[in-house]
Design a protein around this nucleic acid. Sequence first.
DNA 1: GCTACTTTCGCGCTCTGT
DNA 2: ACAGAGCGCGAAAGTAGC
Lengths: 261, 261
Amino acid sequence: MPRGATPGNRKICTAIIKREPGTELQSSPQIYNLTSIYRQPLSDTKDSIANLQGFKLEGGLTPGETCLSPIADIKHIINRPQAKRKLELEPEIINEGFKTPGKTCKRRRTSEASPKTPRSPLEKTRYDTSLGLLTKKFVGLLKNAREGVLDLNKAAEHLEVQKRRIYDITNVLEGINLISKKSKNNIQWKGCTNSIAANPDCPALSTEIVDLHSDVADLEAKENMLDDLIVSCTKQLKSMTEEADNKKYPFSGLQYLKQDY
Amino acid sequence: MPRGATPGNRKICTAIIKREPGTELQSSPQIYNLTSIYRQPLSDTKDSIANLQGFKLEGGLTPGETCLSPIADIKHIINRPQAKRKLELEPEIINEGFKTPGKTCKRRRTSEASPKTPRSPLEKTRYDTSLGLLTKKFVGLLKNAREGVLDLNKAAEHLEVQKRRIYDITNVLEGINLISKKSKNNIQWKGCTNSIAANPDCPALSTEIVDLHSDVADLEAKENMLDDLIVSCTKQLKSMTEEADNKKYPFSGLQYLKQDY
DNA sequence: GCTACTTTCGCGCTCTGT
DNA sequence: ACAGAGCGCGAAAGTAGC
């Protein structure tokens, strides 16, 4: 439990960026999600470039590395260390009160009082707010909903959780085909929905299976087609390359490194 | 629905994992890469592509030049190992450069988006990384695991996703009683057999369906990859052609690196 | 118990898409 | 404007060694 400093609440250890004077943005201590701090475009590019060059840009240039090649230069630029950030946790704010844009700031309060773990009574434990438990409740609601159709906003409200969490659940249930989106904000339970669910073998299922099989067939055909296309592309590339070679044109190869991979 | 792929601007460079050498025995390499893009299990496709380009033009290059053939570049990208990086939060230095949470680069949408499937460049689409799809794949793995026991690290590695995502799935599946924790890092599938809360016979869970769904998902991902490859092949072909025409050698290479950023 | 590390995973920022 | 969802930080819970 000795966890990081500040036991107790402190929620999101929002990183407060220490902006050097002169820099833009509002004066208030910007609270960023680290994600945005590190945000750094080009990471993909960086990776591929690095790989192509056999460099390993672990994070900064290796000492003594001489960046001479154009690639190295680029790498340098791309790899430029991201911003300076202090990341100090303002002791002040610490307890919420701030942030959380709009939305139902459902802060589950971790009482800051008890420094240790006296589990305060009304305190919600991690388990209480776990996705697993929530899933149980959610499915319970879903099953009781007439028609098996449930409104996500209602559910979120009823269960007292952020909508975001509901999505976590619906996404996997959908992946498992236990539910399906019916319309905006509405999903439907497909546990052999209405009418005598007891039916040993849901007829609707066979339909689905058939559909799926044809989907697979379709996709496979498509794949073959694409494969062929690639083959021809490759051939063309090859002949062009060879031709270029004969003419003694030294390609650095760099030109193929464009943007989006 | 796959649609759009955004360029990965943000994508924090992967992070995580420091793991000092020496530690950890089998604890997987914990590479949480995000963009590892195509390092996927589509081995067959990958291999065939690799084979297709049986040519190597290394021979005609200027000595010392590591020029990879364009195709090789692609292959490289596809095979690109996950980038493992440090993400050290240097409190010091670091000049800015990043920041401005503002929407800096507004996602440039592939302008020439065809009405339908604009199919973006080598990038994973949002759909490709969706929880729903991941769930399908995960369940697929789970079913095939002997004893129905699956190691989460293996799964995360295999599916090339952060472990965090796996937890999202296991948590809800557990809530539904489809799986149960067996031990640290191991969960077990509790097939359709028992429970499933009140649902008599969970049809949606039929093995075949889930399998089919994951097949479809796989094929779709493959298709996306192939599409992307074609796009990039085409671009390369185009640039090569133009180059040849202009005969502007040598290249600094740098000039070709622009656009997209 | 306590320190140190690993596994789980709550949580909400922020980007996507319509 | 807003529904939807990717994504990763860091805290909580669990382990191992002291």
